Simulated assay, not measured.
Amino acid sequence: MNGAPSLRTPSQRIAWTTTIVASTLVFFFLMAPILAIMPLSFSSGSYLTYPLPGLSLRWYEDFIGSPRWMMSLKNSMIIGVAATVLSMVLGTLAALGLAQWKSKFKPLVLAVVLSPVVVPGVITAVGLYFFFAPIGLTGSYLGLILAHTALATPFVVIPVSATLQSFDMNLARAAASLGASPLYAFRRVILPLILPGLASGALFAFATSFDEVIIVLFMAGPEQRTLPREMFSGMRENISPTITAAAVILTTVSVILLATLEGLRRRNERLKGNSA
């Protein structure tokens, strides 16, 4: 009943109970920092302390009414959306090329493409800084967008490549044999089938760009301060409960992205079930 397996022996019941308890403890351990910060954003006091002296929305009002915080939120949205669009184009092209390429060097090229995922962020940031500085792209929106695109593109390549594993390339060849141009075949044949993977990659790419702070620390100028960068500066220079309001907003954006991703996953499963 209730999703639990049929338990026949005391040892099985003990193992099942232990699994449930351990999973619950791990869940609360992971959620504890988020659950601790949320009530502080509604505190009426001027310090990050428990118990709360009262409830208030003053820190959300301070966040919304502050030109500095609003500029950082706007920068995060601009850079995140632009980097997501570019990473969708580059990641899709890379995944399509790798899916059709038969070479012994393919694993090496794939490792290079996915390297921003495994290379420590500070190393990537230093490398991008020394690469962009001589050509004048540091302290500019274009430089940050390109840097975030390099960081986010692997998160598009991975789900699109996974989707292409079950894609029959003969469909594209059949479209070409019927007179379709490569662009038309991609738009009408390939894109609808890889769209769930592309949408998932876009969500991961946006989340990666929106939450990124290390590259911004190295490359952003005063006009390109993003929301995570502003929060980092606030924690270092002047701890204000407004930071907790910003943290809750970031968490809300992440939850919305995860919920959207789960919706896309379920939709993809329904489509596969219908086609089967």
Results as ranks from 00 to 15, higher is better:
Thr17Glu: 11
Arg8Ala: 14
Ala247Trp: 14
Leu137Met: 13
Val156Lys: 10
Leu195Asn: 05
Ala111Arg: 01
Val156Glu: 13
Gly201Arg: 05
Met231Cys: 04
Gln12Ser: 08
Leu55His: 14
Leu110His: 07
Ala220Thr: 12
Ser41Trp: 15
Ala174Val: 01
Leu183Pro: 08
Gln100Asp: 02
Ala180Gln: 00
Asn268Ser: 14
Leu178Val: 08
Ala83Val: 05
Ala207Met: 11
Ala247Cys: 09
Ile37Lys: 02
Pro53Glu: 06
Phe28Met: 08
Met219Thr: 03
Ala111Cys: 12
Tyr60Gly: 06
Leu203Ala: 07
Leu144Lys: 04
Met235Ala: 02
Arg225Ser: 12
Ile249Ala: 06
Ile249Met: 14
Val119Phe: 09
Ser254Cys: 06
Thr49Ile: 10
Ala150Met: 04
Gly121Ser: 06
Pro120Gly: 11
Ala176Val: 00
Pro196Gln: 09
Ser275Cys: 01
Arg267Tyr: 01
Val213His: 11
Asn2Phe: 15
Gly97His: 03
Leu191His: 03
Ser166Tyr: 13
Leu217Ala: 03
Met231Leu: 11
Ser46Lys: 13
Leu93Asn: 03
Gly54Ala: 09
Met31Ile: 13
Thr18Cys: 15
Phe206Ala: 00
Ser72Ile: 05
Gly65Asn: 10
Ala147Pro: 15
Val26Met: 15
Ser11Pro: 05
Ala82Val: 10
Thr18Val: 12
Ile243Gly: 03
Ser43Lys: 13
